[in-house]
Design a protein around this nucleic acid. Sequence first.
DNA 1: TTAGTTGCAAAGGCTTTGCACGCGC
DNA 2: GCGCGTGCAAAGCCTTTGCAACTAA
Lengths: 147, 147
Amino acid sequence: MSDLVKRLRGRGWRMTAQRRVVAEVLDGEHVHLTADEVLARATARLPEVSRATVYNTLGELVALGEVVEVTTDGRAKRYDPNAHRPHQHLVCSGCGEIRDVHPAGDPLAGLAASERFGFTVVRADVIYRGLCPACADAADDGADAAP
Amino acid sequence: MSDLVKRLRGRGWRMTAQRRVVAEVLDGEHVHLTADEVLARATARLPEVSRATVYNTLGELVALGEVVEVTTDGRAKRYDPNAHRPHQHLVCSGCGEIRDVHPAGDPLAGLAASERFGFTVVRADVIYRGLCPACADAADDGADAAP
DNA sequence: TTAGTTGCAAAGGCTTTGCACGCGC
DNA sequence: GCGCGTGCAAAGCCTTTGCAACTAA
């Protein structure tokens, strides 16, 4: 049984086959699935999983702080199970691939008090954008071949 | 005529009444309207503006680099006309208010080469999260009164 | 037992699209 | 006049909701 399932059980979560499968699908580093992808993988293991249950379960995992919602574009939200080690995201502008990254220093440090407009600032979410090696190569090839 | 309209004209943009109104609605600091809000304000000035045209025009302004798309939650995208001075965003978790902020230092500096996974990193989008003064006060009142 | 979960299908919010008409250049 | 831009309405994607049947504890 995964650590996550253990922790949820310990918190009095009513454990069902569907919830277990959703929780198990969300496991590992650099995992950033959309609700639809979670549904697909969950259904592969257990056909009796509905879309609504996936959304319900994801919403609860987020509320419990076990999973983090990530929005890297205007499209579907992605769900990141690596919630217990603070990290940021590096996104490829070409293919959309996402990696977890751990920048040095406190991300809040750069924001001077005069730039806080009286806000109580508690967190900074950073999305680094660029091209992954594969997309950078493709862009170079395109630059050599096309013109 | 606004600077923006001048610049667009200079780039050979076919200027129509609708596009002018959309461009004029998007003007100023700390402006972060949704497509719907742009439509509402545009319609107030010129009734003959359709939703589709607002989306078309916003998309073109983004492609031209005159406006930046901002997604602060899973909801509607917001459009930020302040594209020519690099900045980040400070978002109130209570009411959703957004301020433009200018952190010190290069936001890419914190990401070591070993954390880049071979990516060519070109930009960092930061969303600082916290409570605005009004929402912080409301939260304090609630803490004093409720329990 | 019994309150919490599930599945289904329908509705909801936001955005895009297809096509005929209209207008800037 | 030509071709791009517009409006309308319908469709699309992602997500939420209502309710009866089901099941973990």
